[in-house]
Amino acid sequence: MEFDFSSLFAFILFGVTIGVVYGIVALGISLIYSGLDIVHFAHGELYMFGAFFGLVFTQTMGFPYPVALVLAMLCAGVLGMGIERVFYRRLTKSGGGYTVAGMGMIICGFGMSIVLMNVAFLIWGAAAEPFPVDLGMPYQFGDIALPKSYALTAVVAVCLMIILHYFLKKTKAGLAVRAVAANKDIASLMGINVPRIISLIFGLACGLGGAAGVLIGPMQSVQVEMGYLMLLKAFAAAVVGGFGSLPGAIVGGIIVGIAENLGAAYISASHKDIYAFLLLILVLMFKPSGLFGVVARVKA
């Protein structure tokens, strides 16, 4: 039997589109990690809330999809900032991620994840909700039909990354974010209001997570338990790319997306979710710092 290159290409293409979404969730996890020195384990729930916000804005309020995307991002961002202000702030004050309080923050993340899931359950119920978005006929590339939602997802995700990159490199607030991520004491000596910047980092990261939810929504259905699998895959993406590295998060996401699709196509489709973690284990065995990570990054 002849090898079918066009379906291989299709699997890779689908892998990349889903991968960039893992990438933007991973980007949020990496941002929070670089700002607060913790892995935010409730990040998957912000993604889930983003998807529900998107659903409410399109279905209940009748906004067009792009507007709903922006609104859902804002809402997820504000929700994230609220969570940071009420719960994480007091823990940051007592020392941050590399202290005993850091352990508390990680556990707080797990607790927050359960709380958010139950809040969503109370509001929207346990049933999976479809998120129909009519974008028209798929694009045709030769034999491959790429649904417009996939193309849109990839384009939006790439735009978000470019905007984030521009923000971090070219704006004053972006410079402050990088300064806070590298060294909080020195940042405060520059006149930067460090708690406010941490709040901004949290808002940005959760906004990205929310955007991912709205992007994935039309491909899958929306339900309260969708967050944890996304969290784990984004976490795998962040580790593969190198924890704390922003370009690494994106590349890691794409690699995880491709691995998952190729694994599902050529090995076994019923074990689709395993391949991301297989990759995670391999990376941890052979290159623990990830592709772009710095070995044992020291932070003050």
Partner: peptide
């Protein structure tokens, strides 16, 4: 006072 206020 917080450091950023003192800088200002």
């Amino acid at each position: 006072l917080p450091p950023h206020t003192i800088v200002r």
